[in-house]
């Protein structure tokens, strides 16, 4: 067991980890279930978390390596108790069915719009090609990303 300290959704935390624990396993022990291990191979995006502002697959990241990092998960809302622009757009467009993949899509969409505020449909498809939705709500997801981009632009 190793003791690690990191910032989780803005709060300093301490955790005990074994070398073989991955980030999803650690977050689950801390009561956070938004990042889900699905494929376990970094392909599906359901376990997306942000480490020092970069999206990573929690299933392919050793928990011990979070020591000293800043970690953000879907549980961190931009404003207290309110959905952010991307979440609002996903709800508005019905960009999910079972919702299992949604946290990953929302986090990846935030990353995309932070880098590229007005992505083309091709750029959206390319950026999100590493996220899988087994309910196949892809058309709605693309519309949601486009809507979120428009809302962001209008609010800017």
């Amino acid at each position: 067991m190793k003791t690690i300290r990191f910032e989780l959704n803005g709060e300093p935390v301490t955790a005990q980890v074994e070398p073989h624990h991955n980030v999803v396993e650690l977050l689950q022990t801390m009561g956070l279930r938004g990042a889900r291990e699905s494929c376990g191979q970094g392909l599906c995006g359901c376990c997306t978390v942000l480490v020092d502002g970069l999206a990573v697959s929690g299933c392919l990241y050793f928990a011990a390596q979070l020591d000293g990092a800043r970690v953000d998960t879907i549980e961190r809302t931009e404003r207290e108790g309110e959905l952010d622009v991307v979440q609002q757009a996903f709800a508005e467009c019905g960009a999910f069915q079972c919702g299992f993949c949604t946290p990953g899509f929302v986090l990846m969409t935030r990353q995309l719009l932070a880098h590229n505020p007005a992505p083309s449909e091709d750029e959206i498809r390319h950026y999100l090609s590493g996220n899988l939705c087994r309910c196949a709500t892809y058309p709605e997801i693309i519309r949601a990303v486009q809507l979120a981009a428009r809302i962001r632009k209008a609010g800017a």
């Binding site: 997306t48 990241y61 390319h126 590493g130």
Partner: peptide, 12 residues
Amino acid sequence: LRTLANVRVRNV
């Protein structure tokens, strides 16, 4: 690199 794995893997 643009089509190698995905954004999350390339970040790491």
